[in-house]
Every structure is written in structure tokens, then in C-alpha cells.
Design a protein around this nucleic acid. Structure first.
Lengths: 139, 139
DNA sequence: CTCAAATGATTGAGCAGTCAAACATATTGC
DNA sequence: GCAATATGTTTGACTGCTCAATCATTTGAG
């Protein structure tokens, strides 16, 4: 058995995530949202019709369905997203971005990009491409 | 401004972490510990004298000092770690591994390594090295 | 048709962590 | 020596999530 670089690598990813959480989290807090909110807005923004089923959303942002319910409730109250029912299937509840939500997302996206660039500043273009390629291979 | 690969890359790291959390978490649960517990045991195991200050531990595992207090309490109760006072400075409280803790860690480490290898199975040796190098450059 | 099983969302209870305040001890400047 | 300040830890109140149970609706088998 070789040196088991895998375990060390996983630990490093965990450390990186912890750094991301802190830096991106504080960048986003200026917009009054958390990282999970951002991930949700991001999914809605890039979704075909800016409507997504709650359970798909859960899958996409890595939360449980109940986590999504609890996350969306306050977002709905402050008017970032709105609930829409599906006429074909009354069990599912679609979520859509509001204009206010779109605005907030676009603002927050700028901060997100800046913070990401700052975080990855030690890498040059070629390394970024390589890094991205490796991540996609594992996902 | 170029394509802003950085933001996409950060999102990918977040996705990877979410996958790690789930897979490694369930591997560790067979040993009755969570990922944070494992990180703590790992730090203690690899520390010079298997004694660490609580606040250093917080830094190393990416928790707040109070998070460490709350994490260690149950671990101490089930005998994985023990508190030791520092005769030179009564403010600090050192944490040390017990024999039971060492045993659990060594067992859990096997699962951790297996789960990590499974997770990174799509990459070959050369890619693993490259990945690791990039992670260390960013940390 | 109808009713049993499947699917999607929400709710209740609880755990893991945060932040800010409190507490305990140490260090420093006068 | 002794206040004032700094450092390390814990505690109280809260947030954000999970899991299991529940509710609502749909689907499918007889």
C-alpha cells in the first residue's frame, strides 16, 4: 500500500472549505445573506425557468428537504423568493426568484467573485484550470 | 475581466466538501464518532506530546473556542480524551488522548483512509499529487 | 373505482455549532 | 505591590441544520 496521500488530501479539502466558509461567509453577510442562501439564489438564477422544485433544490445545494423548507421560509418572508404551485401535481411546490431576489443575487455575486478570486490568488491561470479539472473529475 | 473561473471553482469545492461530509461522516459513524471528533483525535494523535491547548485545537480544526469546549465535553465523558492542567499557567487547559481514544482513533483512521481512497478513486497517482500540491498552495 | 403504496413537503425534537458576555488567571506599567 | 489590561476558557441564548414522523397528494394493481 502506497503512502495514502488520499487521506491527507481529504483533510486539506476540509481545511480549504473551512477557509472558504469564513471568507465567503463574511463577504456575503454584507448583503444580509448566508452561504446557503447564496447557493439557493445561484441555483434559481441559473435554472431554466427560474423555477425549481424544493426537493431538487435540496439535492443541488446539499441540504435535506427539511433544511430547504427552513431555509426558504425566511427568504420568502423578506421577499427574495416566492412559492408557486404546480397545477399538474399539487404535492410539489416550486420556488422562483423575485425581482428583489434577482437584484440581491446579482449584487452578492460580485462579492462572491471577488472573495473567490482573493482566496485563489496564489494560483495562476493554468493552475486554476488544472484545479477545476481535478475537482470536476471527482464530483 | 476573464471568465471568472474562480467562482465556479469555489462552488465545486463546496460541492466536494458536501460529498466528503456525507461519505466520511457515515464511515466514521460506525466508530461512534463524527467528523469533528475525528479531526480532534487526529490533531491530538499527531501532536508532539499528544497534548494540545484547547484554543490551538480550535484553530486547527476550524472551530470556535466555545465549539471546542462543547465538542470535548462528551468526548471526555466517554473517556476518549482527558483534561490536564498546565502548572505554569492555570488559564490554559490541555487536552490529551487516553488509551481508549488512541485505540478508537487508530480504528477510525482505517475507515477514514478507505473512504478517502474510494472518494478519490477517479484520480490516478499523478493527479492526486497535483491536486494535493494545488490545495497546499491555496491553504 | 378504490385503496395501498409511493412521492413531496412540513413539522417536532434535538444536536452541533456560533457570538457575546462572564469568569478565571496572568502580565505589565506605575 | 496593585490596578488595568490581556489571555484562555466556559456559559447563555440563539441559529441552522438533521432525522423521524406526519400530512397531502398522486399513482398503480386488482
Amino acid at each position: 500500500m502506497s503512502e495514502n496521500i488520499e487521506a491527507g488530501l481529504v483533510l486539506s479539502v476540509i481545511n480549504l472549505q473551512s477557509k472558504i466558509q469564513k471568507r465567503i461567509g463574511s463577504a456575503l453577510s454584507a448583503h444580509g445573506i448566508g452561504l446557503s442562501d447564496y447557493l439557493v439564489l445561484n441555483q434559481l438564477y441559473t435554472a431554466p425557468n427560474q423555477k425549481v422544485r424544493r426537493s431538487d433544490l435540496a439535492e443541488q445545494v446539499g441540504l435535506s428537504p427539511s433544511g430547504v423548507t427552513r431555509l426558504l421560509n425566511p427568504m420568502e418572508k423578506i421577499g427574495l423568493v416566492k412559492k408557486q404551485e404546480n397545477p399538474r401535481d399539487a404535492r410539489v411546490s416550486l420556488v422562483a426568484l423575485t425581482t428583489a431576489g434577482t437584484k440581491i443575487y446579482e449584487d452578492a455575486q460580485v462579492s462572491f467573485k471577488h472573495a473567490s478570486a482573493a482566496l485563489l490568488e496564489p494560483l495562476d491561470k493554468k493552475e486554476l484550470d488544472e484545479f477545476y479539472k481535478l475537482l470536476k473529475a471527482v464530483l
